[in-house]
Design a protein around this nucleic acid. Structure first.
Lengths: 321, 321
DNA sequence: CTGAAAGCGCTTACAG
DNA sequence: CTGAAAGCGCTTACAG
């Protein structure tokens, strides 16, 4: 491996100059920079992030905290976050708060010891207050004034879902969704439903209730008891949509002939043995990119917007017309 | 953060001595070590891995290559590998070969540039030959003489499955599984089935065929066409078992009354809206631990066994008696 | 704009 | 067994 010393020697400059050219910090003559860049290219120079981090007194580590990594949304998010973070020379440690207490402890310890440079806090649950000096960003959740978040255009996308169900002939459109314990952008999913129904002068059929992962089927059974006449369902998550599909099928309803179902998230993959879900697909790659950008700005002490919105859109499947 | 210098000063020794005490390399007087350990404890000293790696000329990076991170088995494996690797001061980069070409390229580049210290190669597909000087370990797959692997006791566990189906009254037990393109320990799943059936003097009903993720339902439909009388299924993976459940249900069969199904892997989680699967649960945490241990030995140039076996066992669910 | 030097936190021959 | 010193690859005041 070529080091910065090799590049400097080959280019006939000092190692400090080479560093400034390669890192982009500090002023440098364009010709010198050009020469150094060429040499670096020729030698296949790749900066050693460990040395860089050591010098810069950064741990080079970002924590990603998620409720559970085994949920496909978080699994996917983790992968894309890792991509972004890795490209920036950081490593990422993922903390799956539900499923891995041991690691959570290690992590919390690291946080206490100031060994992470930042946190991406993607959670649905409440948590102890964090060191306010530590850069934190979130997804969807409003964690406090100092903590920016990335989110989808939940309201607009959800409106489109409800309008579509109505346009495709559903007479009794209902909505089922969770009830986040903390303030979260996901509330705009059911709010959009309520607004559209009221604008059309239609009755609101809404089951909004807190539940844990795994309880989706109970939730859906309760939903059908309450609104047996439903022929169009807007489910707040794909897992709810999936449960709705199963329960409705068990009840002898045909999907989408008798009941149309549209979910939210767009993370279920082909290996899921099912007719494909019609759902709102969130743009996780872009969300990850925006989230990391926010975090890096915070780490550098720069100003950031409090909120970044990434468009989501409906993808067609077999559960709606 | 306390550094080794702080520890050395506080303990009244040289920094080299402190290093030897803390890292365990080099001889040191027990009393000195005790003193240094106490001081380190008191100061909450945590060694800086970046400095350590820099000095040791190690990239501190391990690559995990999997076919797709969105399959729950690999997702789970990735999490546990990350745990083990992280605890050792390495970072891990995961390469999901199917789903993320961009990163795969970056990765292959890194490999070429000798920037990873080792690879955990968990794949079902063939791959270009790797630099033979690079430490590599695998799971299940026989990648070559120099590459050790971790595996479950596929044969014994699978025998137990078939014996159980027979003991619980299944008259026509059949087996469905993939056909790995490369030599893999997973073949012992169907081999165990064949052996048990023959020992009992029963006819072998086996569908073994290569297929991609997502094609499980077709596979199962073909299976039922071929063996319509089946009332006991040993599926080589949970995804096949899941597909078998769906297809059988669609055909009007009751599970487990008409057809019993037992899978293999044990990775499907509760959020899966389904009756829980009876399946063979592989011990992924232990497999990850053993895999990392093998890899570290290889990195240090030590001898390792060519094969490490971790026991798996049947967990009860609702799809078998 | 550029070079020489110090230093990030650690490890490891090298003497003693 | 222990200490002083050099050095891993990089960055960044400090002079010039």
């Amino acid at each position: 491996m070529a080091t910065i010393k090799d590049v400097a020697r080959e280019a006939g400059v000092g190692v400090g100059t080479a560093s400034r050219a390669l890192s982009g910090n500090g002023s440098i003559h364009p010709d010198t920079k050009k020469k150094i860049d060429e040499v670096a290219e020729k030698l296949g120079f790749v900066p050693n992030q460990q040395a860089r981090n050591l010098k810069k007194q950064s741990s080079g580590c970002i924590a990603l905290i998620v409720p559970t990594i085994f949920h496909p949304f978080f699994a996917k998010a983790a992968l894309y976050f890792e991509n972004e973070i890795y490209a920036l020379g950081y490593r990422m440690v993922v903390v799956s708060s539900q499923d891995n207490r041991a690691k959570e402890k290690v992590m919390l310890n690291m946080i206490k010891q100031q060994r992470v440079d930042g946190i991406i806090f993607v959670t649905h649950y409440d948590h102890d207050s964090l060191d306010p000096s530590l850069p934190v960003v979130s997804i969807d959740r409003h964690l406090g004034a100092g903590i920016p978040y990335v989110t989808s255009n939940n309201y607009e996308a959800s409106r489109a879902v409800v309008e579509r169900l109505l346009a495709k002939g559903a007479k009794n459109v209902a909505c089922v969704c969770g009830d986040p314990v903390v303030e979260s952008e996901t509330i705009y999913r059911y709010k959009a439903y309520v607004d559209v129904m009221q604008e059309h002068g239609l009755p609101v059929r809404l089951l909004k209730k807190a539940f844990d992962h795994g309880q989706e089927p109970e939730m859906i059974r309760e939903f059908f008891e309450k609104f047996p006449e439903t022929d169009g369902i807007f489910a707040g998550t794909d897992m709810l949509a999936l449960a709705a599909y199963h329960v409705a099928t068990q009840m002898g309803r045909k999907i989408p002939e008798d009941v149309q179902i549209i979910g939210f998230d767009g993370v279920l993959d082909k290996w899921q043995t099912l007719p494909s879900l019609t759902t709102v697909q969130q743009n996780i790659p872009e969300m990850a990119k925006a989230g990391v950008e926010l975090l890096m700005k915070r780490i550098r002490g720069e100003e950031t917007p409090a909120r970044v919105e990434i468009p989501a859109c409906i993808i067609d499947g077999d559960t709606a017309k």
